[in-house]
């Protein structure tokens, strides 16, 4: 059994989760400081990929990154890089689809932060960077880790946008979810069921981890 789809899915999900970790946290942190109207508008835009069908996200991404489209043709002409139909093209799709999960969990975690701690840090002479990484993030740790794990889980299962932007090339762009579809389409039930079981196992483990992390926020001893 060729395990390439599993390897590919894991690396796409891992890279996307790291990506979304930083961007999601930054978005959640800075949006809180914006005026109300702008905050409302950006919040809708940032959350939209969560409710849009992944095929719509895929279509929009192709409009921007496709070889004849503005960004896609720019990369192709200047560096001879084709942004679609590569294994890493899926990272674009997965990151966009998964971003709202990270953004919203991080925002929820930040809202529970006790601002007095940041104020105390500032009067003690601590830099804002130090306060962010050493006081704010540790305080919101559980929520943020849960967001990363949830993003990773959703990233593993992304199908719609991925199949549009990366397609299905065995040994190149194939992921677990696109492999299952392809195997079912070609009537290879025996292999399809194996991938289905692998998928269920991974997802169950990830959800177990999320549940453990979301236990009532107990204080550390």
């Amino acid at each position: 059994m060729d395990l390439y789809p599993l390897f590919n899915s894991l690396r796409i999900a891992a890279i996307s989760a790291i990506f979304v970790f930083f961007i999601g946290i930054a978005a959640a942190y800075y949006i809180a400081k914006l005026p109300r109207v702008l905050k409302g508008i950006l919040d809708v835009i940032f959350t939209l990929p969560l409710v849009l069908p992944p095929t719509v996200v895929g279509y929009l991404l192709l409009l921007a990154l496709g070889p004849k489209r503005p960004i896609g043709s720019f990369f192709l002409e200047n560096w001879d890089i084709r942004l679609t139909m590569q294994w890493w093209s899926a990272i674009f799709a997965v990151s966009v689809v998964v971003f709202p999960l990270m953004y919203r969990t991080a925002r929820g975690a930040f809202e529970r932060f006790d601002e007095n701690l940041a104020d105390a840090g500032r009067t003690l002479g601590l830099s804002n960077t130090y306060i962010f990484w050493r006081i704010r993030l540790p305080y919101c740790k559980q929520g943020i880790i849960a967001g990363v794990v949830l993003s990773f889980a959703r990233a593993l299962g992304e199908y719609g946008a991925t199949s549009m932007i990366a397609g299905y090339t065995p040994g190149k762009t194939a992921t677990v979810s696109t492999a299952v579809y392809q195997l079912w389409r070609t009537g290879n039930d025996e292999l399809a069921i194996k991938w289905v079981l692998i998928n269920i196992a991974i997802s169950a483990v990830v959800l177990l981890v999320v549940n453990l992390l979301e236990k009532p926020q107990r204080r550390r001893p």
Partner: peptide
Amino acid sequence: PPQKRRVGYLFQEYALFPNMTVSGNIMAG
């Protein structure tokens, strides 16, 4: 900025950093 004022502020609920030890909290200052 507060960092440059050298004003010591004792907060009502003390605002100790929960992720740091007693030493860590004092060292932060």
